[in-house]
Amino acid sequence: MAALETTSPTAKATSSPNRLLRDLAGLAVILIVAAIGFLLFPNNLALLTRITAIALLVLSLDLVTGYCGIATLGHAALFGAGAYAAGIAAAHFDINDPIAMVAIGALGGAVAGLVSGAVILRGHGLAQLVLSIAVVHLFHEIANKASEWTGGSDGLSGISPDPVFGVFEFDLWGHTAYGFGIALLVIVFMLLRILVRSPFGMLCRGIKEDPIRVSAMGASVQGTLLRMYVISGAVAGIGGALNAISTQVVGLDSLSFTTSAESLVMLVLGGTGSLFGALIGTVSFMVFKDFVSAVNPFHWLTIVGALLIAVVLFAPKGLYGTAAQLLNRSRRQ
C-alpha cells in the first residue's frame, strides 16, 4: 500500500511514450509466457486455460481490493455469475457463439457486481468482510436451489460452443480454447491498463487513500466504488464465461467461498494494486498448486497456509511489489 503512494507520482511524471513502452513490454511478456506454457505443456492446455480464466478473476479482484481498498471474500460470486450466465445462454437458449457467450458472461458478471457491490459497500471493515461472505454463500445457495436452470450440484452441462468466427473449432486438445483465452486476457489486460490510469482509476486510488478527502473534493465515493464494482464484475464474468466455454460445464464450485478465498490469496501473493502482480500471483499459485497437490493433496493446504503466513510476514507487498522495490533500491544505488 505504501508503495502505491510512492510510485503513483513517479508514474504520473513519466512521459507517455515511456508508458506505452511499458505496456508493450507487459504485453510481450504475457505472450511469451503463454507461448512457453504452450510449448512446455502441450498436453495440459486445460490447466493453462483454467489459469487464464482464474487470472481474469484475480485481475477483477485487484480492481476492487487493490485499487479501491475493498476487502472482499466473496468475489467468486461475480465469476460464477458470469459462468452461469454464459452457460445458461448456451444450454437453454442455444446461444452458442463464443463471443456472444463472453458478452453475456460479462453482462451477467456486471449485474452480479451491481447487486453484490450495492450490498458489500454498505459496510466497512469487519461488516464489509462478513457481507461479502454472506453474498457469495447466498449466490451459491440460489444456484443450488434453481437446479432447473443451473443443474444444481450436478453442474450445468450441455454447453457446446460454436467455432470462433466460424473457423476455429473447439478441439479435444484445447488449442482453440487456450488461444481464445489468451486473446481475451490480452484484450482485457490492455483495457484495464488504460482504465487504472484514467482519471476514474486515479479517483479510485484516491478513495482508497482517503475517502473523506475525496468526498470533500466533491466526488461521490459510493457511486465511484459501485461503478468500479460493476466493471470488476464484467471482467470476472468474462473469466467465468471463458471457464464455461473451455470446460463446457459449470459447477457450483465456481461460486464457492473457497474460490473467493483462493483468488484473494493469489492476489496478495502477487501483490495488490498492480495488474502485473495479479497475473504473477495467479500463475505462480496455480502452477504450484497443480504440482504439490499431484504429490499429496493434504500437504497442499499446509504449504499454502505456511506460504500465506510467510507472505504476510516477510513480503507484505507480494512477489511483484517486493521485486519492484528491490529493483528500485538497487537502481538508486
Partner: peptide, 15 residues
C-alpha cells in the same frame, strides 16, 4: 489492516 489479518489467520487455518 483487515486484509492482512484475514490472510494471516486463513494461513494459520490452512496449516
Amino acid at each position: 489492516p483487515e486484509l492482512t489479518q484475514v490472510l494471516m489467520t486463513i494461513g494459520i487455518t490452512f496449516c
